[in-house]
Design a protein around this nucleic acid. Structure first.
Lengths: 176, 176
DNA sequence: GTAATAGTACTCGGATAGTAAGTGTCCGAGTTAACCGGG
DNA sequence: CCCGGTTAACTCGGACACTTACTATCCGAGTACTATTAC
């Protein structure tokens, strides 16, 4: 399995849709059905994004999500950390101090400071994180906008609005 | 779980011991028992290192492993790739083309080229890999040598030699 | 016309399977080199 | 003394449990808004 999971992929794609959505954003269910994703699974991802302060939710029948700040101020690193919880690249198990030469009593120089291997891994992880922090939701959205025709984005916007209108009611009769 | 597994950690630690071992290196079992690692598990890691051309094996009762080139010419990236098999950081599942707007028939502009999210992840992965390629087995070993007293390294060398001598025989009588 | 009530769809959290990958063990096949006995 | 068979420990590969994390589903509780109903 890859280090960055599909939860991250789902999360970023959803946030991209929120870039175009207005003040009254779609629900997690709308986003799931639009993209062919499990609605219940996506519903477990959004609370993490909200706790990280990336989106704001509104409850009730007209509820939904919207970005809590400008897309240019949301980095991919923030999204990854929000969903994966700052998962380390490398999990040092202190192999060196397990050496059988010093039976269960490693000397100070063996445990002092950080393991050289671990240090190299931390440098690699920092390089990755720095790269992720240089891409923002806005910059990714710009690439998508350049690819997709404007008509398509309008259609999706209309789809969201229709979903929103079709909520509520449905008690006695359907409009026809 | 972390992206880089304990297999990588075990592998690097073992290669570090091989830096100090001479032409006649220790067996995977020697290395496992020295470090308190599962011998059978370690025995599954070394063939990968050998396939990648990092170590050379010699079979038989006097067999063992030795580095196949100078430690300064073995990068951490090569070790990681040898053991993990060039595992990608991010596994793009083409969420964008699954959009329910175009039912099962995504237009060309949606599938053309690489996904913008995927591209950002590839940049992050490249940054990580570049960092890993800048650390060599030699540079890591130098840090360890600076920390551990020379006497300790000699003791380990002696331990390996004794293990090697105590192989074979043991049929009728022990030398005394 | 206004206030109270019922109903709907939402968010949120916990409990629970199924699946995939990593970790670790066991066993057998083939290899090498030292030891042992016969020529 | 020399040569072939035996033996021990190695590498190598496959098959097999165990554990963990991720993915996905289901259900119940609380919330906000709408429509209906009562006054």
């Amino acid at each position: 399995m890859a280090h960055l999971t599909v939860s991250v992929e789902y999360g970023i794609h959803c946030l991209l849709w929120l870039v175009d959505a207005g003040e009254h954003g779609p629900s997690s269910r709308d986003l799931a059905e639009l993209q062919g994703i499990s609605p219940t699974f996506l519903a477990k991802i959004f609370p993490k994004l909200e706790k990280a302060g990336l989106v704001q939710s509104s409850g009730g029948v007209q509820g939904g999500y919207r970005l809590s700040r400008h897309p240019d101020e949301i980095t991919l690193l923030q999204i990854v950390d929000a969903i994966e919880g700052d998962k380390p690249l490398f999990d040092c198990r202190q192999v060196r101090s397990r050496c059988s030469m010093y039976a269960d009593d490693p000397p100070k120089w063996a445990t002092d400071g950080i393991c050289a291997i671990h240090a190299a891994m931390i440098r690699a992880e920092d390089a990755m994180r720095t790269s992720l922090s240089e891409s923002t939701l806005g910059s990714v959205a710009a690439i998508y906008h350049a690819k997709a025709p404007a008509q398509f984005l309008d259609e999706v916007g209309g789809w969201f609005e229709e979903r929103l209108r079709n909520r509520r009611v449905r008690t006695s009769s359907t409009p026809g």
